[in-house]
């Protein structure tokens, strides 16, 4: 049911972990619903120089966490804000319809982390 890209990002997730003293942190979802994603950002001159994540969730949640963090690494904050869940799902070769909400989780977690960064840095 999952594409090869999803399985690759699930089995070999990129950017798993935490960043010490991050410039922005975002956490969305809740354990009751079965998925939580936490994103850590390191930002220099409005460029995302490093990103890490921790995710509690299904295969699709972990794969979209991995892919979305790959897609914003090295990008500007504005570019990262423009990332859509659709783009993440497409980059993964598509997701089963019942799993599309997992890609929304990743988009929202990144946006929350950037908001946190902006708040901390008065932007």
């Amino acid at each position: 049911m999952y594409s090869d890209q999803v399985m690759d990002h699930f089995m070999n997730p990129r950017n798993v972990g935490e960043i010490e003293n991050p410039d922005g942190v975002g956490e969305v979802g809740n354990a009751k619903c079965g998925d939580i994603m936490k994103v850590f950002l390191k930002i220099e001159n409005d460029i995302i120089v490093d990103v890490k994540f921790k995710t509690f969730g299904c295969g699709a949640a972990i794969a979209t966490s991995s892919m979305s963090t790959e897609m914003i690494k090295g990008k500007s904050v504005d570019e990262a804000l423009a990332l859509t869940n659709k783009a993440v799902a497409e980059a993964l070769g598509g997701l089963p319809p019942v799993k599309m909400h997992c890609s929304v989780l990743a988009e929202h977690a990144i946006k929350a982390a950037i908001e946190d960064y902006k708040k901390k840095h008065n932007k």
Binding site: F10, F56, G57, C58
Partner: peptide
């Protein structure tokens, strides 16, 4: 605790 069942099933399947 702390993990989700589908992710577990997928990994076990592999």
């Amino acid at each position: 605790e702390f993990i989700e069942g589908e992710a577990l099933l997928l990994t076990l399947d592999i």
